[in-house]
């Protein structure tokens, strides 16, 4: 199908919002999964939510997970370690900017690009200028 994306955020609403934006670019061609907030609805990142999101975003072509801040990265790394070696081989973490990275990676995934190209595009979003100068 296509590389899937997981949006890891401390906030459930932020993760869902980024998924909403990215989905506007992909028209259902890419699996997008939000992993935001804690099970009790509080702010934070939950390992269980991230591992579930990785499973639901993976159609076999791999998953790129984007993260918001701080402990989201630690949790995402733990989620990766909890996968078996075969699954882990096709999951990548991106430290690229969450919103721009997700949108660009979603488009890259939607045209059928392989995992490492989708990752590279998510990372490259750092160089995207928001304001015209």
């Amino acid at each position: 199908m296509a590389v899937g994306l997981v949006i890891v955020s401390h906030s459930a609403r932020l993760a869902e919002g980024v998924v909403e934006l990215a989905a506007q670019m992909t028209h259902g061609a890419v699996r997008l999964a939000a992993a935001g907030g804690m099970d009790d609805g509080g702010i934070g990142t939950s390992l269980a939510r991230v591992t579930q999101a990785i499973a639901s975003a993976d159609s076999g072509d791999g998953v790129v997970a984007l993260i918001d801040l701080g402990s989201a990265a630690l949790i995402a790394e733990m989620a990766l370690e909890s996968l078996d070696a075969e699954q882990r081989a096709h999951v990548r973490l991106s430290g690229g900017p969450l919103v721009e990275g997700a949108i660009l990676a979603a488009v890259e995934a939607s045209v059928g690009s392989p995992l490492d190209e989708v990752l590279a595009t998510a990372e490259s979003a750092r160089s995207l200028e928001k304001l015209k100068r």
Binding site: L104, V107, S124, A125, S127, L128
Partner: peptide, 10 residues
Amino acid sequence: KRILPVLQLG
């Protein structure tokens, strides 16, 4: 076919 360069065309 690449999103970032296309966006960067401005």
